Each structure stands twice: as C-alpha cells, then as structure tokens.
Simulated assay, not measured.
Amino acid sequence: MLGLFDMMFMLGSLAVSLTVLVPLVGTLVRFRAHYNPKGLQLDSEGDVQPHTGPVISSYIGMLRRVHRIEGWPGLYKGLMPTLLSTLLITVFLMMFLSESNLRSGKYSAPDGGAVGVLFYSIFAMLVSLPQVIITNRAITTPHKLPYFNAIYSLRILLTPTERRRPWILYLTPGLLATQVAHIAYVIIFLRSIRQLLLPELANPGMPRTEEISPAKLVIFFVIALLSTVILAPLEVIAIRLSIQRNHAAPEFNSISQEEDGDAEEATEYAGADEDVIGLRTDREPYIGMVDCAKRIVDEEGWRALYRAWWLTTLGSLSGAFS
C-alpha cells in the first residue's frame, strides 16, 4: 500500500495535470468539431447563400476565442467527466498495482504480442467510449453545465433515446469503426515497424546510443510522420461522430433536439451573444466513417481533416519511446 505522502503526491500531480491539460484538450476537441463550411452554399431552393458562422483557422485562435466568449469556465468544460474517469483509473492502479510500479511509472498494457495488445486496447476503448462521448459533448455544447448536477448535465448531453437505452451510444454510426481503425493502425503497423527497426526500444530502460542505428531511427521517424496522413483524419472523424447524437426518429441529427423535453431550459453563458463554434445543423447526419470523411471534404475542404495535425505527429513520434 502507498503511504499518505505518496497518495498526496499522486493526487497533487493529478490536479496539476488536469489544470493544464483540460483547457488544451478542450480546445483541440472544439477546433476539430467546428463546422466551417466553404464560403458559398446552396439553400433548400438552390439559391447561393454565404456562410455566416465563425471562421477559426488555428488551434491558438480557438483557444483565444473560447476564453473571450466563455472565459475560464468555458476552458474547463469537460472537467468533471475527465476528473471522474481519471480518479477511477487512479484508484484502480493504487489498489491493484505494486508500490514500486506506481513510483517508477512502469504500468503498461500487458505484453502479449501485437494481437494481445490490440485486443487489450480495443477492450479499454470500449470501456471508456461512453465517457469519451459525454466529455466531447460537454466540451462542445453551447450550454453551461453545473459541476455537481450530473442528472441535469446528462439531460443536456444525451437525447431521451440515449437515456432510455444507453447502449445505443455504442451504435453511433461509424464511431466504433473509426476508433478500431485508429487503434489497429497504431498497434499493428506502427508498433510492428518499430519492433522491426528499433527492437532495442522495447527493452526496459533507455538503450545506449550505440545500440540504436541512426539510419533506422530516421526511417521510423519518417514513417511516423507520414502516418499523420492517416491518423489525423481518423481523430477528426472520431470527434465529429462522438458528438453526433442518437435519436429514435431518423430525421433528427447530431445537433437537432428531440421534441419530448430534450435540453429544455438550458442555461447559456452570461453575456455570450454568439456560439464559440459552429455545429452542423442540417438534418442529414453522418452515416458512417467514410461518409463523414467525404462530407467533410465536400462541405469544408480537405484541410478540415488535418486540423491540429502537428499534435497527431507529436503523438506518433512519442510512440517510438513508449
């Protein structure tokens, strides 16, 4: 068992991490979820209509916009679901892992080969999927959610259909396929390439410089960099699909509300006369991963699939040493 000092240190580190990461992750989710169609569109009668919503072209621009419109509370949207899930994981680690492992940070997925790690990662994704959906919706909703009223918040974030049948979250069109594709690419392809080129990195501790071939290291970094072409769109699509709400009636989409009391009397941010981001408001939801990619390209341009691509690249490169 951990001592009191170790527990306090762990909780303090957790608090600092959430303080820094929640605004950064929230900005990333909003930036990738923002619907920014091309300048001219056709209305239902075929007439050309200019786009009148906000245009945000950078991650930093989104961060500043959130702070300007919603202030610090807006930057910490999604704090409570993130905090609760992190606390559950922390308690699990404290209960079932040894003190030496916790102190040295040696916890990782079970080493059962690529297939074993793949199934473990998919299982972990399935367990956390509802939390990811709720967190992303909490971040992107224009409504102000209380920190300590989960029932009220869930009424805002989930449709009546989803509250009656919560398992329908797993049937969100294309979301599971997108998540599995992302996991499979990272584990089966990138992990196998790393094992082939840099097997020394799989050993405990940092390898000596002379053990690593500079040429193979450069090759792996180039492959990880090029992987951004595939991984960044998958991450954007996953966020778009996670905020797409499931309704009993097919004519409703991710933004529309069902008629039976969904999101009634929701509180807006004081003084906010405009939404931070634009959300796709037509009644034609994405019907799958490929459909989502095609519609994003058709409606917003291919650059929308590569928002904050540099963060994806950093994640891929850091995988060389994980």
Results as ranks from 00 to 15, higher is better:
Phe31Leu: 07
Gly26Ser: 00
Ser57Leu: 13
Leu24Pro: 08
Phe96Arg: 12
Thr82His: 00
Val22Asp: 06
Phe31Arg: 09
Leu14Gln: 09
Gly105Asp: 01
Tyr35Glu: 02
Thr90Lys: 04
His51Met: 12
Leu97Ala: 04
Ser17Gly: 03
Val29Ile: 15
Leu63His: 08
Phe31Ser: 03
Val91Ala: 13
Lys38Arg: 14
Gly71Val: 03
Asn36His: 13
Leu87Met: 10
Pro50Tyr: 14
Asp47Arg: 13
Arg32Glu: 02
Val22Thr: 15
Glu99Val: 09
Pro73Asn: 01
Pro54Lys: 07
Val22Leu: 10
Phe92Pro: 10
Gly53Asp: 06
Leu63Tyr: 14
Thr27Ile: 01
Tyr35Cys: 01
Arg32Ile: 00
Leu88Lys: 05
Thr27Pro: 07
Val20Ile: 15
Asp43Ile: 03
Val25Ala: 07
Gly26Ala: 00
Ser98His: 11
Met62Thr: 01
Phe96Lys: 11
Gly39Asn: 06
Leu21Ser: 11
Leu88Asn: 00
Met94Lys: 03
Val20Asn: 03
Leu11Trp: 10
Leu84Tyr: 09
Val91Thr: 11
Asp43Thr: 04
Val22Gly: 12
Ser85Leu: 13
Gly74Asn: 05
Leu21Ile: 14
Leu93Glu: 04
Val48Asn: 07
Met10Ser: 13
Val91Gln: 06
Leu18Gln: 05
Met95His: 12
Arg103Pro: 06
Leu24Cys: 10
Leu84Gln: 01
Ser57Met: 14
Leu63Asn: 05
Thr90Leu: 10
Glu99Ala: 08
Gly78Gln: 00
Gly74His: 02
Tyr59Thr: 12
Pro23Val: 09
Val55Asp: 10
Val91Cys: 10
His67Thr: 06
Leu24Trp: 08
Met62Arg: 03
Phe92Trp: 14
Trp72Ile: 11
Leu18Cys: 02
Arg64Pro: 11
Lys38Asp: 02
Ser17Ile: 02
Ile60Met: 13
Ala15Ile: 08
His34Leu: 02
Pro73Cys: 03
Leu84Gly: 00
Val48Ile: 13
Arg68Glu: 14
Met62His: 00
Leu28Gln: 08
Ser44Pro: 01
Arg68Asp: 15
Leu21Ala: 13
Pro37Leu: 01
Gly46Ser: 14
Pro54Ser: 05
Phe96Ser: 07
Tyr76Trp: 09
Leu63Pro: 07
Leu18Met: 09
His67Arg: 10
Tyr76Gln: 00
Pro37Ile: 02
Pro50Cys: 12
Thr86Gln: 10
Ser98Gly: 15
Ile56Tyr: 04
Glu99Thr: 07
Met95Asp: 05
Ser104Leu: 06
Met10Tyr: 13
Ile56Asp: 04
Ile56His: 09
Ser58His: 11
His51Val: 15
Ser57Pro: 09
Leu87Thr: 02
Val91Ser: 08
Leu14Ile: 09
Asn101Gln: 13
Met94Leu: 06
Leu93Lys: 07
Thr82Ser: 10
Ser104Arg: 08
